[in-house]
């Protein structure tokens, strides 16, 4: 079976700066894949290139059997690739429910579809916040809302950019549980992380990116066993 999402020879620029060099990665259905690497290594840019916010200058991205690397972000999102940015980017002028409404898309065949009730089960903290302005939420709640908003688009695969960044340790644990719950629903999850604990708790496979290139590709067990790789690229 071909992977749900695959990228080959992905290159991307920010203005004049060449950020990604021939990045290749894949994620199968129901798999949690983590991109590890230092800040500025190109993790966020990889996710942005996949969703089309930083259009790749070369390479190809295939999602559910279709080339998406020349599409606009909204077209990619409508094909079932969800994206949760690093800084969450909640619509603070809107209420919590309105935020979720913006993400809503019709159900897709063969893909877990989400309702408000299901989202509230995933993130109980959101349940009683419906008409509150999103601006009043705490950082952890905003991260939950950002994920819930994207899930409302019924994605087949979700890109999470540093979901644990800036969260208190207790909330990080909650976030890990939510990622595993998404996986059990059958969702593919591709996330970028710097927090190795978090990555180890949720991921099946890992890619290590450094200076815009993929340096390691293997299962979490392989990464765990490979001290050389970890000390060379993650410096933990």
């Amino acid at each position: 079976m071909p992977p749900m999402l695959s990228a080959k020879r992905l290159n991307a620029y920010y203005g004049q700066a060449h950020i990604l060099f021939d990045v290749a990665l894949e994620a199968a259905a129901g798999e949690v894949v983590v991109l590890l690497g230092r800040n500025g290594a190109g993790k966020s840019t990889t996710l942005k290139a996949l969703i089309g916010l930083v259009p790749p200058s070369a390479g190809e991205v295939v999602f559910c059997g279709e080339r998406i690397d020349r599409l606009q972000p909204f077209q990619i999102a409508r094909r079932g690739l969800g994206y949760v940015p690093e800084d969450r980017r909640i619509f603070t002028d809107l209420t919590v429910l309105e935020n979720i409404e913006v993400g809503r898309q019709p159900a897709r065949q063969g893909v877990p579809s989400w309702t408000l009730e299901k989202l509230y089960k995933l993130f109980p903290n959101l349940a009683e916040t419906g008409d509150r302005p999103a601006a009043q939420m705490s950082g952890g709640e905003q991260q939950m809302l950002a994920i819930a908003r994207t899930l409302m688009g019924n994605p087949a695969c979700i890109l999470l950019d540093e979901p644990s960044e800036g969260l208190a340790p207790v909330i990080v644990d909650q976030m890990a549980a939510a990622v595993l719950e998404m996986k059990s629903e059958g969702l593919s999850v591709l996330l970028s992380e710097q927090n190795l604990h978090f990555a180890a708790a949720v991921a099946d496979r890992a890619y290590i990116i450094e200076k815009g290139r993929v340096r390691f590709n293997g299962t979490m067990a392989e990464l765990d066993a490979d001290d050389a790789v970890r000390s060379a690229h993650l410096a933990v």
């Binding site: 690497g37 230092r38 800040n39 290594a41 960044e165 800036g166 710097q194 190795l196 993650l234 410096a235 933990v236």
Partner: peptide, 8 residues
């Protein structure tokens, strides 16, 4: 150290 890799 927000936004930096652990070693940095």
């Amino acid at each position: 150290t927000a936004g930096m890799a652990p070693a940095e």
